[in-house]
Simulated scan of single mutants.
Amino acid sequence: MSEEELNADGWEAIDEALEQLYGEQEQKHYGTAIPYMLGGPDPLNGISVYEAREPLPHWHFVTYGFSELYEKETEDPGYSGYGFELTFRLSKSAAEDEPPAWALNLLQNLGRYVFNSGNVFRSGDYMDANGPIALESETVLTALAFITDPLLPAIDTPNGRVEFLQLVGITNDELLAMQVWNTLGVLMEMSEHIPLYITDLHRNSLLKLPAIAEAVRLGSESEGSNTGALYVDQLAWENPEDDSIQTLQLGAKQAEIVGKLLHGRLLKGRTLTLAGPEVTVSFETGVNRSIEIHNDNVVLKLDEAASEAISEILRPVAGLYHLTDWPEFAVRIVPTHITDNEGTVVKTIG
């Protein structure tokens, strides 16, 4: 049975929402020849791209496939599929007649991540791309933030609700600011300089602007961090048989952000949880410092002095660090190797 013969109520609902925004403009649509479930390489059914001229020329990408485009298959009647589709606004040069292929590949890669992991995106999320979001480009945008598309409100389809989440290309220090404060707060401060959150590969970090840097500093100090949990791929816990010195291990790339999160969470009385491949480590405030181990879960209760001391240790410099007034505990920071798609190490941190 062809797609044309299928009940395409979900697809048509997205088309109608875009028609309200772009009228009769004929979109550029990039479909998938072989369905993902039949072994095709691309998980999304298709991506439509519109050309927008305001507030500045840009491409507007919209995915089809995170939601249920045809028959209802999931059990939740309130949401269609994963409950969202992704959008992406990318600055367009006058010489461009076609949207760049890397942006289409980026959206399909995010589809693979969601389909393979089951993890979904929500407004306020962020993701580190560990390199330029446009491969083989010299852009300093190396991460993504997610926010509700400012011109595409959520829609109710026969298969349930669908929200439109827009990707925003961000720099590494902007990502760090979002982690130590919150994504939507940082984006709001940046919005005057990136209207409609249009991604421009050629822009520099907006934290170089004193007003934005100060707003982020004040926000993080007054509100603390909204990041309560973080996946740390080089996380480990060393617990010797004689219990002499128990050691927390982190990779150099993530050491600094963990230190800042400790400062922004524990001083506000909030817990921070780090999840690794084999262990989970939680930091909690306590009157007295202690270490509790329950199978693969470690709980560190820290007084204010210990929290501050560990935060100071956590820098992107490899080494073994001891706390002078807590001899039973140490922190080991190991180098982080950044690799390309073929597994070749292109950068070492620490």
Score class of each variant (00 low, 15 high):
96 E>G: 13
97 D>C: 01
97 D>M: 03
97 D>A: 03
97 D>L: 03
98 E>C: 08
98 E>M: 09
98 E>I: 07
98 E>G: 05
99 P>E: 00
99 P>V: 00
99 P>H: 05
100 P>S: 08
100 P>K: 07
100 P>H: 03
100 P>M: 10
100 P>L: 07
100 P>E: 13
100 P>C: 08
101 A>F: 01
102 W>N: 03
102 W>A: 01
102 W>K: 03
102 W>D: 04
102 W>H: 10
102 W>S: 09
103 A>R: 02
104 L>Y: 06
104 L>T: 01
105 N>Y: 01
106 L>S: 06
106 L>I: 01
106 L>M: 11
106 L>P: 02
107 L>S: 05
107 L>W: 01
108 Q>I: 02
108 Q>E: 05
109 N>A: 09
109 N>G: 11
110 L>I: 07
112 R>Q: 03
112 R>P: 00
112 R>N: 03
113 Y>W: 00
113 Y>N: 04
114 V>R: 02
114 V>F: 03
115 F>Q: 09
115 F>A: 04
115 F>E: 07
116 N>L: 11
116 N>F: 10
116 N>Q: 13
116 N>Y: 08
116 N>P: 06
117 S>G: 09
117 S>M: 02
117 S>K: 07
119 N>A: 12
120 V>M: 10
120 V>K: 13
121 F>H: 05
121 F>Q: 06
121 F>V: 06
122 R>N: 14
122 R>A: 15
122 R>L: 14
122 R>D: 13
123 S>W: 07
123 S>A: 14
123 S>G: 12
124 G>T: 11
125 D>N: 14
126 Y>R: 15
126 Y>T: 15
126 Y>K: 13
127 M>I: 08
128 D>K: 10
128 D>Y: 11
129 A>Y: 11
129 A>T: 01
129 A>G: 08
130 N>D: 09
130 N>L: 04
131 G>A: 09
131 G>M: 05
131 G>W: 00
131 G>Y: 00
132 P>I: 09
133 I>Q: 08
133 I>F: 04
133 I>Y: 04
134 A>L: 08
136 E>W: 14
137 S>F: 05
137 S>D: 15
137 S>Q: 12
138 E>P: 03
138 E>K: 14
139 T>E: 07
139 T>W: 08
139 T>R: 13
140 V>S: 14
140 V>G: 14
141 L>A: 09
141 L>E: 07
141 L>W: 01
141 L>Q: 07
141 L>V: 04
141 L>S: 06
144 L>R: 00
144 L>M: 13
145 A>W: 05
146 F>S: 03
147 I>Y: 04
148 T>E: 10
148 T>C: 10
148 T>R: 15
149 D>E: 12
149 D>Q: 07
150 P>R: 11
150 P>N: 13
150 P>I: 04
150 P>M: 10
150 P>L: 09
151 L>D: 15
152 L>F: 02
152 L>H: 05
153 P>Q: 15
153 P>F: 05
154 A>V: 10
154 A>P: 00
154 A>G: 12
